[in-house]
């Protein structure tokens, strides 16, 4: 029995081993390139130096303050965007008239890159956290709203008519028919929005100078603290990985009951 299980885990363990090998290989190349003089270590310090700096960061309160700032803008922005998108989405989605009437406007506003709002944010909020929030909320709002609208468009007409024929009002239909159908789409939207929100939070900090990891990266770069900059870039990557993993796990949990297997409608 024990033997059988290990046989089953074989290919998976092998894949994992190769994956870890890939990461180690990457760090080895990174270590070797500046040491062998392929790249100047003024621009690319060896991996060991950067990792050491990252380790040091992890013990510094100032670093954690930056992480907290970034994550606060991320979480708050994502929350506001999600609530707003759900409210707007359900209102628009529950009426055919509104769905049609808003179509062009949404299609027009959606592709506006959120970074276009940077000057506006600076003008109104300066370098305070609200600037970051404006960008994060704008970018993630569309992700959630669009997925939610896709989901509502997917509502089974028969199910909706059945609900109507049993005298369910608009609110009850939203609660019992529209919401459950749209939930998987909403989760996809949330997952995409979570990634986008991080990108915009870092962008705002980097460009506008609102507090957080992005600002710190800009400062270390202009101050010539190169290994610190690389360490911070690694840190943002790790936060990104954690957010992606977390979003995927939550999506799976919430949807474990759901029969629908959908192709991904992204963005």
């Amino acid at each position: 029995m024990r033997k059988q299980r290990s046989a089953a885990a074989g290919p998976k363990a092998k894949a994992l081993g190769l994956g870890i090998g890939g990461i180690i290989l990457f760090f080895l190349i990174w270590e070797a390139a500046p040491r062998l003089g392929l790249v100047s270590d003024r621009y690319l310090p060896p991996a060991s130096e950067v990792l050491a700096r990252l380790g040091q960061y992890l013990t510094e309160a100032a670093f954690w303050k930056d992480v907290a700032d970034t994550m606060t803008s991320w979480a708050l922005g994502l929350f506001i965007a999600t609530v707003a998108a759900i409210v707007v989405g359900l209102i628009i989605g529950s009426s055919r008239f509104l769905r049609r009437a808003t179509h062009t406007t949404i299609e027009f506003l959606r592709p506006i890159p959120s970074v276009a709002l940077i000057p506006l944010a600076v003008l109104i909020f300066g370098t305070s956290i609200e600037s970051t929030l404006l960008l994060v909320v704008y970018a993630s709002f569309w992700q959630v709203l669009l997925q939610l609208l896709y989901g509502i468009a997917d509502v089974d007409a028969v199910a909706n008519d059945t609900a109507k024929s049993y005298g369910l009002g608009r609110l009850a239909r939203v609660r019992y028919v529209i919401w459950p159908t749209a939930l998987p789409y909403l989760m996809t939207g949330l997952r995409l929005a979570a990634a986008v929100a991080l990108i915009l939070a870092i962008t705002a900090e980097l460009i506008i100078g609102t507090p957080g990891l992005g600002k710190q990266i800009a400062l270390t770069q202009s101050g010539g603290a190169i290994s610190s900059m690389y360490a911070l870039v690694l840190a943002t990557g790790m936060i990104g990985v954690l957010i992606n993993l977390g979003a995927r796990i939550i999506e799976k949990r919430v949807l474990s009951w759901h029969p629908s297997v959908r192709g991904e409608v992204v963005l």
Binding site: K14, G22, T203, L206, I217, Y230, V241, N244
Partner: peptide
């Protein structure tokens, strides 16, 4: 198998930090 975890990591790095880098 070799590259997938690495690529997932690169994907997760918010692209704007690449500007100063």
């Amino acid at each position: 198998n070799l590259l997938e975890p690495l690529l997932e990591f690169f994907r997760a790095i918010p692209p704007p930090v690449l500007v100063p880098l």
